[in-house]
Design a protein around this nucleic acid. Structure first.
Length: 460
RNA sequence: GGCCUGGUGGCGGAGUGGUUACGCAGCGGACUGCAAAUCCGCGCACCCGAGUUCGAUUCUCGGCCAGGCCUCCA
């Protein structure tokens, strides 16, 4: 089985061949920590977490290096700090901590490296220095700008030519730019902003340079995979390639470019600037993280995803079915610890998670209906398949009991014990009365041959 | 204006040059004190037009619609 990935540069699926199988490298553009992450921000995190897990399986956990940056120098951070009258670090640390907690609830593994812009300043300044010396960058009015003419393949990733960009320009071009597409590598800080000393004068880095410097510093260039949302293709990733290649890395920048599609609210994209956001921080109070993860992976990562409450409800139902099958098979000893071949096939075909999920249902069905031997194998494959991409790790009982606390669970268990006794005595009147009591507690009771199990109904 | 995606059943969502996955919802049946689950079965779709083809939802062209990028943005 070969992993095939859709490469934006090639505009096609390509078999994945790492530069060095003993050291597979992936970089994904991470958060700017000035606010809580919304569910749209979480999509690439979860998608590339799936890829990270697949790569670890293929090449070994110790042989995959995954870096995701944290942008902690930014106008919006400055603004927020000024509004609250606190140091910038207070803002960035607060939202970085929240980000870690939220992504962890979504089942995302921590990246191997999480470089921060403020801690990469030497590498950033060094890279800009090399660009200036190589005539790929120039100083103008206190800025240092990248000279897009210096890179002949500029525009290849996004399919734009420099000519087209001039023709289609809607934005007024800063007068100090030699070419309209040139972009800022270093700029003077405004009063009150953090300032770093550099050979180009005091200031701070532009947006694009930090990623290239971080990749160079943490992973080394070229890398195998570079990922991010498809809104980053232009200009961010285009600029990364240009500056990276010109900064003495003619051997290549990234061999595979992966971009996830957008998550939409209605027909509009979810975006902090549009204000139509659902924060992960709030969603995890209303639904299990695993259900949110499922909702994010229920459609293919390159497709647009329309986020609605129903997405979460459907995800819950799907997981209910799988956990239900596992719960009913509690007495079946799982055999084997390998995901099913069909499941792996689906994932290896450019992370086809919807198809992989369908295989999970097929396994659950086999677990319900097979012979004892088939059930044992199905259970083993179901658990292993789920575990590979971060599903079905909970105890089925814990899944159904949801947010019930110990006291509530004890009360429910006591009522159920009474009811089981009443049913054994064919005292249907008492049994129904107790069911009604439980219903009032939002508890649904499912009788079986030996007793009963229960689940907490999802909040409406 | 330039560049780029996508339009599949009631809903979500894969996939394919020729019997159109899967999940949710619906319908019938089995099972069941009740309820749920489970099991068996059923129904329902490929934006429009032209072309290529024995045959297109799938390929080509045109159109319509929706969205993204071109400015911070996952």
């Amino acid at each position: 089985m070969t992993l095939r990935l859709y490469d934006t540069m090639a505009r096609d699926k390509r078999p994945f061949v790492p530069i060095d199988p003993a050291r597979v490298t992936m970089y994904v553009c991470g958060p700017t920590v000035y606010n809580y992450a919304h569910i749209g921000n979480a999509r690439p995190v979860v998608v590339f977490d799936v890829l990270f897990r697949l790569l670890r399986r293929l090449y070994g956990a110790d042989h995959v290096l995954y870096a995701a940056n944290v942008t902690d120098v930014d106008d919006k951070i400055n603004l927020k700090a000024a509004q609250e009258g606190v140091p910038i670090g207070t803002i960035t640390q607060r939202y970085l901590d929240a980000y870690h907690a939220d992504m962890s609830v979504l089942g995302a593994l921590a990246p191997t490296f999480e470089p921060r812009a403020t801690q990469t300043m030497d590498a950033i300044i060094a890279m800009i220095g090399r660009l200036v010396r190589g005539n790929a960058a120039y100083a103008a009015e206190g800025h240092v700008l990248f000279n897009t003419q210096a890179y002949s393949d500029y525009g290849k990733l996004s399919g734009r030519s420099l000519d087209e960009m001039i023709a289609g320009a809607r934005v007024e071009v800063a007068p100090y730019k030699q070419h309209p597409a040139d972009f800022v590598l270093w700029k003077p800080s405004k009063p009150g902003e953090l300032v770093w000393e550099s050979p180009f004068g005091p200031g701070r880095p532009g947006w694009h340079i930090e990623c290239s410097a971080m990749i160079e510093q943490t992973l080394g260039l070229p890398i195998d995979i570079h990922g991010g949302g498809n809104d980053l293709i232009f200009p961010h990733h285009e600029n990364e390639i240009a500056q990276g290649m010109c900064a003495d890395h003619a051997g290549g920048y990234a061999n595979y470019w992966l971009h996830n599609g957008f998550l939409n609210m209605g027909s509009r994209k979810m975006s902090k600037s549009l204000g139509n956001v659902e924060l992960v921080h709030e969603l995890i109070g209303r639904a299990p993280g695993e259900a949110l993860r499922w909702a994010l992976l229920a459609s293919h990562y390159r497709q647009p995803l329309a986020w609605t409450d129903d997405c979460v409800a459907q995800a819950r139902s799907s997981l209910d079915a799988l956990y239900g099958a596992l719960g009913r098979a509690a007495n079946v000893e799982a055999e084997g610890a390998e995901p099913s071949p069909a499941f792996l096939d689906a994932l290896f075909d450019d992370l086809n998670t919807p198809k992989a999920n369908a295989e999970l249902f097929a396994l659950a069905h086999r677990l319900e209906t097979g012979t004892l031997g088939e059930r044992a194998r199905a259970k083993g494959e179901l658990l292993a398949s789920g575990a590979l991409i971060g599903f079905l790790r909970a105890n089925p009982e814990a899944w159904f009991h949801g947010t019930a606390d110990v006291a509530l669970a004890a009360r429910i268990d006591a009522l159920i014990a009474q009811r089981v006794k009443a049913r054994a005595a064919k005292d249907w009147e008492s049994a129904d009365r107790i069911r009604a009591e439980l219903t009032a507690l939002d508890v649904e009771v499912m009788d079986n041959a030996t007793g009963a199990v229960w689940r907490l109904k999802a909040p409406a």
